[in-house]
Simulated assay, not measured.
Amino acid sequence: MKHLQCLIADDEPIARQILEGYIKDVPQLRLVASCKNAFEVIEMLQKEPIDLLFLDINMPKLSGLSLLKTLQRGPKVIITTAYPEYAVAGFELSVTDYLLKPFSLERFLQAVLKVQKDEEALPENEVNPIAHSAKTIFVKSDKKILRLNLDAITHVEAYGNYIKVYEQNMVLTPQTLSEFLERLPQHFLRIHKSFAINFDQLKLIDGNQVLLQNDIKIPIGKSYRKKVLQYIENN
């Protein structure tokens, strides 16, 4: 499978860091450079073969859209921006996808898969390992974006319209438990209406509760017990 040579263009350091982390987590992607403005992008495009450009729109001196208009032939482009009003203009310039900040790793992977399918003409039903490569996840918490290690997450607790994610510390983030589980690998399983656990952190099951590696006890909901036992039998 071909590796995609990637270039980031964004004037915001935290936005570049997030994209750099996402790219690092995907074996099929290789980051060539991370640029702060359009002129650095132009310089890199002249030096290196680039397959995929992650492009912010609002950059100093020369905007992302203005840069696109100057490129007669160039890499595939995924726009990354906080401004939805530029979507139409972006697609008129034949961008592959339009990611609205803040976007999840799952949404990032969907955009990259579009590029891969264009590049390699992958069948719709082909299983691509890119979708199983995530080792971290980004969440919003107290006006910050935190990167969490999936292996270190022990369990997740529903808390109204928020959830509590227990990694090294507890992180409170504004999303529902169901929404969060959609972004997680299959070994994260809901075992109660208010709890989901990382089964890689499971130590034992004692009656109607589980004991995790950190000796935290989590109840198993009556309606979830069959699902838990089926998971254990199949794994």
Rank of each mutant, 00 (worst) to 15 (best):
I163A: 10
H155E: 10
V112R: 01
S104A: 09
E120L: 14
P129G: 10
E124K: 07
F91S: 05
L100K: 06
N169E: 15
L148F: 09
A131C: 12
L177G: 05
P129H: 06
Q110Y: 04
G160V: 07
K143I: 06
I153Y: 06
L150P: 01
F108Q: 02
S133Q: 08
P174L: 14
Y166W: 13
Q110S: 12
I137S: 06
D118K: 03
Q175D: 05
L150R: 07
S133N: 04
D151T: 12
M170P: 02
L148S: 10
D151M: 08
A111R: 01
Y166F: 15
L105Q: 08
F138D: 02
A134Y: 01
N128F: 04
A111N: 04
P174E: 09
V112I: 15
F103H: 11
K144H: 12
I137K: 05
S104F: 04
I145Q: 06
T136A: 12
T96K: 02
Y159H: 13
L100V: 14
A134C: 09
L177R: 04
Q168N: 12
I137A: 08
Q116F: 03
D97L: 00
K140T: 07
F91T: 07
H155Q: 10
K114R: 15
E157V: 12
A134K: 15
G160E: 08
I145D: 02
L148R: 08
Q110M: 11
K143C: 08
K140E: 09
T173P: 06
V165E: 01
L172T: 15
Y162I: 04
Q168T: 14
L99C: 11
D118P: 02
K135Y: 03
D97R: 00
G160R: 13
N125I: 05
D142V: 03
V139T: 00
H132K: 09
I153L: 08
E167F: 03
E120T: 05
K135R: 14
M170N: 09
H155C: 10
M170L: 14
V165T: 01
K114A: 03
A121F: 10
K140H: 08
G90Y: 01
L177T: 05
N169W: 03
V171N: 10
P102T: 01
D118S: 07
T136W: 06
M170C: 14
K135W: 01
T96I: 14
D118H: 00
G90Q: 02
E92I: 06
A131N: 12
E157K: 14
E157N: 09
K117T: 03
V139R: 01
Q116I: 01
V127F: 13
L172N: 11
L93Q: 11
A111Q: 03
S133G: 12
Q110K: 13
E120S: 11
D118T: 01
L146N: 08
L146F: 00
F108T: 05
Q116H: 04
E126P: 00
Y98F: 15
A131I: 07
L99M: 12
S141P: 03
V171H: 15
L99I: 08
K101M: 11
K164H: 14
N125W: 06
V171M: 10
K144M: 10
S94Y: 04
D151V: 11
T173H: 06
L109R: 04
L93M: 13
A134L: 12
A152W: 04
V95C: 11
K114P: 02
I145F: 02
I145V: 15
